[in-house]
């Protein structure tokens, strides 16, 4: 990764909720092809940050640029159309559809069918459907759950639903995938599987930005890390640099002694 090209820049981003500053003047830059992690104790402002980047929440001030285009004020669906997709901490699979349909829905922005051509089922529609279906199977194979393709999504175990969300986010060939606490609720076997999937996708050139609580994963797979606490950025760097940053260690030790950095010491 010698030719570092920035893909996402967050500049002085701030969010104020009725007087409370949830995110305070945070800046960082994600480079193309890297796995970038945002960590911090509970309530540090990670989710708020995430929601601002994905357009769920408007920012109070500051800017977000994605490939030189400003993201502020864009709606989530517009941000998706620009090439950023995401997964959810509290799983949001479409439980009224089968697994493969979930993934095909992820390909929504890459398709052209409209209500009229769909209703008349023009040959082009059928062609597009078949193509999308094949791509969906490939996406499911990439995360290792293609054998479950025709099951209803809500019947999948928790870990598989997470993988499904990643397949759904990846099928549209986005330039950046945001993962919201991808390890939450997974057992160690499932976590390992997920890490493998992420690393494999990164090899193919995908960029990941993820918010995570589980320090072990963060340290093992991230290229760069930003640490925030009480809405403020308190550290930035490679895993090694973060691990040696006294401010970070203090924030984590002070907040939750049972897990986090201590486990690494």
């Amino acid at each position: 990764m010698s030719n570092k090209r920035p893909i996402l820049s967050v500049e002085n981003l701030t969010k104020v909720f009725g007087g409370v500053v949830a995110v305070d003047n945070v800046s960082f830059t994600v480079d193309e092809g890297e796995i970038f992690a945002v960590i911090g104790p509970n309530g540090a402002g990670k989710s708020t940050l995430f929601n601002m980047i994905t357009g769920v929440l408007p920012s109070s001030s500051g800017n977000i640029y994605f490939q030189e285009k400003r993201l502020n004020r864009k709606k989530p669906y517009q941000i998706a159309q620009m090439g950023i997709t995401r997964t959810f901490q509290n799983l949001e699979v479409f439980d009224n559809m089968s697994v493969i349909e979930n993934v095909m829905t992820g390909a929504h922005i890459t398709m052209k069918t409209n209500i009229l051509t769909a209703g008349l089922r023009l040959p082009s529609v059928k062609k597009e459907e078949i193509k999308t279906m094949e791509r969906a199977i490939e996406a499911l194979e990439a995360v290792g759950i293609s054998d479950l393709a025709y099951e209803m999504a809500d019947r999948l175990p928790y870990g598989s639903q997470r993988l499904l969300e990643i397949a759904r986010a990846a099928i549209s060939n986005p330039k950046l995938i945001l993962l919201d606490e991808p390890m939450a609720g997974l057992n160690s076997e499932e976590s390992r599987q997920l890490v493998e999937v992420i690393l494999k996708m990164r090899e193919k050139g995908m960029t990941f930005l993820f918010v995570e609580h589980d320090m072990e994963t963060v340290m093992s797979i991230s290229d760069s890390i930003v640490v925030i606490d009480n809405g403020v950025k308190i550290g930035e760097g490679t895993p090694e640099e973060i691990y040696q940053n006294p401010q970070v260690v203090a924030a984590y030790l002070g907040d939750e002694e049972e897990e986090g950095v201590e486990a690494y010491a």
């Binding site: 994905t54 769920v56 709606k75 989530p76 669906y77 998706a80 159309q81 997709t85 995401r86 959810f88 949001e92 699979v93 479409f94 439980d95 009224n96 559809m97 349909e101 095909m104 829905t105 992820g106 929504h108 922005i109 398709m111 069918t113 409209n114 209500i115 769909a118 089922r121 529609v125 597009e128 459907e129 999308t132 759904r168 986010a169 549209s172």
Partner: peptide
């Protein structure tokens, strides 16, 4: 049974996820 149908059903399935995949 098309892109449009999945878009519609995704709204009932999860509005926030539908939004996030670009619907």
């Amino acid at each position: 049974h098309s892109r449009i149908g999945r878009g519609l059903r995704s709204i009932e399935g999860s509005e926030i996820a539908a939004d996030a995949v670009g619907v």
